[in-house]
């Protein structure tokens, strides 16, 4: 493992995507403000916009940094540099996830803060956090699929499936009594169920990432 090289690769990806990260963060913050505006219509528009920004940023950054880079032969340029497959896959899993997390953290932190200080019921908080984490899990998974398959069609189909799954996830969470029943309450109820879901999500992110590194590292050559 060549740590300076991995750092250089992550820095390069950061430079490539930072203006998008800033733009997504601004859009996310704007969506959050719509949500807390004193209008139900604004709330729903804001909510849809927020989810769209989080998922859109995730799909854009993962597909572009992995699949498009390969398709447009910039990966060929990278392969000639002093690195091996392990260095590359670490930069694309941990690195790109970290880059995406910058706007994710900004947006989710704004959302939590906004729910807390605004007239919106604090009961929404557990749902907001659980759903945001699901998007992070999906990002890790999409990166993994992109890296392991190297295929644009497979990755795009996976992205569509993951988007559909997000809606399924949203409804399933709302139907869990611990979460659904407290949604519009004044207090954020972090029940053991909520913690369990959060724990599962974090374990998933870690294991998908480590698993991808483990599988791809067994490959000695790029081609």
């Amino acid at each position: 493992m060549n740590i300076p090289m991995i750092k250089a690769l992550v820095k390069k990806d950061w430079m490539l995507y930072r203006r998008y990260i800033v733009a997504y963060s601004v859009l996310g913050i704007a969506a959050t403000f719509l949500m807390i505006a004193p209008s139900v219509v604004a709330y729903y528009i804001g909510q849809v916009l927020l989810v769209t920004v989080l998922i859109g940023a995730s799909a854009h950054i993962s597909i572009s940094s992995v699949v498009t880079e390969k398709k447009e032969d910039q990966l060929s340029f990278i392969m000639g540099l002093p690195l091996n497959v392990t260095d590359y896959v670490i930069s694309k899993t941990l690195g790109v996830l970290a880059i995406y997390s910058v706007c994710w953290v900004v947006i989710v932190a704004t959302l939590v803060f906004a729910i807390d200080i605004s007239g919106l019921s604090d009961g929404l908080l557990p749902m907001a956090i659980v759903c945001s984490l699901e998007i992070l899990v999906a990002t890790a998974l999409l990166l993994s699929i992109g890296i392991l398959s190297g295929s644009e069609p497979i990755t795009i189909v996976s992205m569509v499936v993951l988007n559909l799954f997000f809606n399924v996830f949203l409804f399933s969470m709302a139907r869990i009594p611990d979460i659904g029943n407290n949604l519009w309450g004044d207090v954020a109820v972090f029940s053991p169920t909520v913690f369990k879901i959060i724990a599962v999500e974090i374990v998933l992110i870690v294991s998908i990432t480590l698993g991808t590194i483990g599988i791809k590292s067994r490959q000695q050559c790029f081609m």
């Binding site: 032969d73 060929s76 540099l81 000695q220």
Partner: peptide
């Protein structure tokens, strides 16, 4: 390919298919 990292540190490689970031 075992020593590819060390070797590529000392080699300048360019090929027709390589593309820079547009």
């Amino acid at each position: 390919p075992e020593m590819q990292t060390q070797v590529k540190q000392r080699v300048g490689f360019s090929s027709e298919e390589m593309k820079l970031y547009g």
